[in-house]
């Protein structure tokens, strides 16, 4: 691996910009994701910034079970994110469908539709758990897995 590639990979580990996408959550996980970005928890310590557009983001933080209505939109947003990209499933519903699993209008967890890099369980996932999940994900990137 040459030096330029190493520098870019270092940048990717140190500057994960996230896009927050609600795939049908009850809003609890969304509130906790926003809470993790507030001054009290301060995710900017790790270089995390919240971005509004998929073109600027590296990590999609998805919350909630994938409903049939949001499924095509989720794929569309995912395809708009430029490579390299990662998806983090935040909350129990996002990891497995949670209590909504098996409903006629619910497809299941995020990984039923798009590839997921990290799962953060919890109902809702607390800001501490979210920060821990992101830190562990960035650490795996460091090891080159």
């Amino acid at each position: 691996m040459n030096v330029a590639r190493k520098m870019v990979r270092w940048g990717q580990r140190k500057s994960p910009w996230i896009l927050h996408f609600n795939t049908g959550a009850c809003n609890a996980c969304d509130i906790e994701i926003i809470a993790a970005l507030t001054p009290r928890f301060d995710l900017e310590r790790f270089g995390v910034l919240l971005k509004g557009t998929p073109r600027h983001c590296d990590i999609m933080a998805c919350s909630g079970p994938v409903t049939r209505q949001i499924e095509s939109r989720l794929v569309r947003i995912y395809e708009q994110v430029p490579e390299p990209k990662l998806v983090v499933a935040v909350g129990s519903c996002a990891t497995s469908g949670g209590v909504f699993n098996g409903l006629y209008n619910v497809k299941g967890g995020i990984d039923q539709v798009i590839p997921v890099a990290a799962y953060i369980p919890g109902c809702p996932a607390s800001p501490q758990a979210i920060i821990d999940g992101f830190a562990k994900l960035l650490k795996t990137l460091e090891e080159g897995k």
């Binding site: 590639r5 520098m7 870019v8 990979r9 270092w10 940048g11 990717q12 140190k14 500057s15 001054p39 301060d42 900017e44 310590r45 270089g47 073109r55 590296d58 708009q80 430029p82 490579e83 390299p84």
Partner: peptide, 22 residues
């Protein structure tokens, strides 16, 4: 807040250089 580390703007710049151009 604590704020970003000193190398943050450089890391942002290098990361963006390695991203896909749409």
């Amino acid at each position: 807040r604590q704020g970003p580390p000193w190398y943050q703007p450089l890391a942002d710049f290098l990361k963006l250089l390695g991203k896909e151009n749409v």
